Amino acid sequence: MPHRMNQNHDRPVFRFAPSPNGRLHLGHALSALENERRAKAAGGRLLLRIEDIDRARCTPALEKGVIEDLRWLGIGFDGPVFRQSEHFADYQNMLQMLIDRKLAYPAFMTRGEVKRLVGESEASGKTWPRDPDGAPLYPDRDRRRSRQERQDLLATGMRHAFRLDMEEALNTLEAPLFWMEETADGIVEVPANPSAWGDIVLSRSDAPSSYHLSVVTDDAAQGITHVVRGMDLYHATAVHRLLQALLGLPAPIYHHHRLMLDEDGRKLSKSNGDTALSELRANGASPAAIRVMCGF
């Protein structure tokens, strides 16, 4: 079983979950402030989660900067900081549950091999299916391998990820999937279509868990009742609902807020230094000015 789940639902529980692989920018500020606003309005708690699974890119120095930026903004969090790097065993337990049910399989193809296969297919005039983010779906080569083939490849020590067998996973469901989305008109039921994502990654050879697997594990462990995040994760919620159903985890209420866009209409990225909170602060911006920039 994963780390102990928070069963105290007397108060709504929200969370802000940045990844310390760069400096926080205005988009992060908007999300943190939106979580703060909704938590206060609901009389709830706001937790801070540090999503630092990527140990190569996420560093203590960057984490320190994230926390300093949030403190400077004046956002207060309840309870201790939750770090994903301290809960790798929990993600492995969840993964093993899916493997034991034959819903996850080892995937040996490298990114380069997938890119080459997709390129060859499209060059021949065939359309390769892509997920809602535009990335090509993972080929079915590894999913179709026999048990003996998989065992032989694993015995060689070949690097591999684990992927969800989407078709098999969907076959285990007894009812259509949906999630509850909080909108300006109230809470509505949104049909979930996880099949659009194909056989999603559950873990990689260089990481014990994918974002999808860790986020549903952590939300359950922390007793999160309301997930407030950007519209860029709207469609991924279908995958999260599937994993929650497969693993017997509770489903929070979701709200996907607007994004902060750059001059070209693209979502802000951590590489765009002129929107970094630390740089804005160094140039004289105040926490109140940041709130105004974010529409608060």
Results as ranks from 00 to 15, higher is better:
L137P: 03
R258L: 02
P139E: 13
M94T: 02
D133A: 02
K115V: 07
V81G: 09
A169T: 00
A245P: 00
A104N: 05
A276W: 02
G125S: 10
A221F: 00
P80W: 14
R241S: 06
M5N: 12
P18Q: 06
D100E: 13
V216S: 02
L247W: 06
A56I: 07
D206Y: 03
A42D: 03
E174R: 12
S286C: 03
S19Q: 02
R23S: 09
Q222S: 01
L154K: 01
D131M: 11
G22D: 09
L177Q: 01
P176I: 13
R204V: 15
A29K: 03
G22R: 06
A251V: 03
A161E: 02
F77W: 02
R163H: 06
D206K: 13
P208R: 07
E63I: 00
H25G: 02
F162I: 01
H3V: 09
H9A: 15
L47N: 01
P194I: 06
S214N: 08
Q92C: 14
S31M: 03
G157R: 12
R143N: 11
M94H: 08
Q151A: 13
E167W: 00
S85T: 03
G157K: 10
F296K: 13
H257P: 04
D140W: 07
D185W: 12
H28F: 10
A89P: 08
H226G: 03
G157S: 14
A89T: 11
Q96C: 08
F16D: 01
A288V: 01
L24W: 02
K267M: 14
R23G: 00
G157I: 05
A221M: 09
G223V: 00
A135G: 10
G186H: 15
M1C: 10
T275D: 07
F14N: 10
G112S: 12
T225S: 10
R55N: 11
W197I: 01
D218M: 05
L246S: 05
G157F: 14
G284T: 06
V201F: 04
L24F: 11
Y138T: 00
P12Y: 02
K40A: 11
R241M: 09
E182Q: 15
K126P: 04
P287C: 03
L30R: 00
E149I: 03
K64C: 02
Q244N: 04
K102I: 10
G248Y: 11
A282T: 08
G125Q: 09
A184N: 14
